[in-house]
Design a protein around this nucleic acid. Structure first.
Lengths: 238, 238
DNA sequence: TCAAAAGTGTTTCTCGTACACCCATGT
DNA sequence: ACATGGGTGTACGAGAAACACTTTTGA
């Protein structure tokens, strides 16, 4: 078969089809002060000027042919680094899904690939300072304003997903420090789920993880204002 | 603010950015003969001519402005109906995620939104006959050929997802007839998971569902070649 | 009447939940 | 010394798993 011929044909034809713009939108979570927080930015341009929205941006596509541009995950990592000021790949990132309802952006057809990111509380304070403009701000998800576009739906799906995954995966470890006490980990669960956990029972279920080699004990204790607590570390090869 | 002005500005600028093509790809599953099956089509054009691939097609975008085209799910439903010959919305459909690695299609940058569909075995025989060309064929996922593009990855993700979800959701009910015996339902589980289940234990766990009002008993029995079995129906409001 | 699948019983183990209690530390 | 949170013990119930058993049909 003639490589050049079909390829040129195909491209000429494909160029006649309308194509959508594609963006990534980020739901960036962190946990502190017993609350699940999400990072929002205030829009400076219409539409929805002045409203809060999820950070995001266009996926770089190159010319689409010889240069096919960047991967979706790479776009998400890039935007995440831009918006937070944190180094790329220092945070957990996972795809949530595609949102492409016609009319979700009044300007034009835009299909958005939603990602969610988890930022350790130790890094979170740096985020707003590092952001180029001061239009970024953390909100408790429980007291978060109505969002622009369909970002409210995306956020809701992200929260659902996180609540669903936290019991089945090791995602909670992305929201505590490298080393942590059982109580700190429990605080993350309580913030995410919005309910209190029995300290004794929670402890036991995570000691099972130590037996399974997922968690490992670190030497020393952490001072807590009361009886010092044992320190643990997530042992998984990331 | 001047609505017309910013919108025109925005569009003129946005048109300078390269945009990717966006497709939907479908992983269409069914279960019969104790096997999880997937519907593949044989490619008639390069690239990957002669190889098997997931069915799919372009998302209709309209002009992208005043006409923003069809929803992603609508595109998936449309393609599903086209490929299978089954009426739209007669089958279960769920989004799996976006696949957009540069180079995944050698022709040009194409971002694909993957969906998976579940077709009841009672409808499956009609599928190949109904398909426009005879290039569609069911394969057991365990004996499926290497696929074109990144469709092997998509299929693997879909299978993982289904195996993961079947215990947490009511997805299995989409793979049996409207009314079914416990053994028929068990056969679906065994096909999907690839392991045998203890009939007695399986039975009991699904009788718990009857107590919870998820399953309901239908009158009569189904002849099975041996002792007739009680018939049940999924009671959920879909 | 016999094989085979429907359906029942029983036992063991694990895990989630509830809750009482002891232990170590800062104030 | 005492309040507070770290850490332990115990007991109950639901459900997963293993497996022996009875029942009902078609061939």
């Amino acid at each position: 078969m003639d490589d050049e011929a079909w390829l040129k044909d195909y491209r000429r034809e494909a160029e006649h089809y309308a194509r959508p713009s594609v963006t990534v939108d980020l739901t960036i979570f962190s946990v502190w002060d017993t609350d699940l927080k999400v990072l929002l930015i205030q829009r400076k341009e219409p539409p929805f000027r002045g409203d809060w929205a999820l950070p995001g941006g266009f996926v770089r596509v190159g010319d689409g042919f010889d240069d096919q541009g960047e991967d979706l995950a790479a776009a998400a990592h890039r935007e995440l680094a831009e918006e937070t000021g944190l180094p790329e790949h220092s945070t957990y990132l996972e795809q949530l899904g595609a949102f492409g309802q016609p009319g979700r952006d009044p300007r034009m057809r835009i299909i958005s690939i939603a990602y969610f990111a988890l930022v350790r509380a130790t890094l979170a304070p740096r985020v707003v300072a590092g952001s180029d403009a001061s239009d970024a701000q953390w909100f408790s998800v429980s007291e978060c304003p109505a969002l622009a576009f369909d970002h409210g739906q995306i956020l809701a799906r992200a929260v659902d997903h996180i609540r669903d995954s936290i019991h089945r995966t090791n995602l909670a470890f992305e929201l505590v420090r490298e080393t942590f006490t059982i109580a700190e980990l429990r605080a993350v669960y309580e913030a995410v789920m919005g309910v209190p956990y029995d300290p004794g029972n929670f402890r036991r279920s995570f000691l099972r993880m130590e037996q399974d080699g997922i968690l490992e004990r670190c030497p020393g204790k952490r001072s807590t204002g009361t009886r010092p607590a044992a320190i643990y570390r997530f042992a998984q090869t990331r």
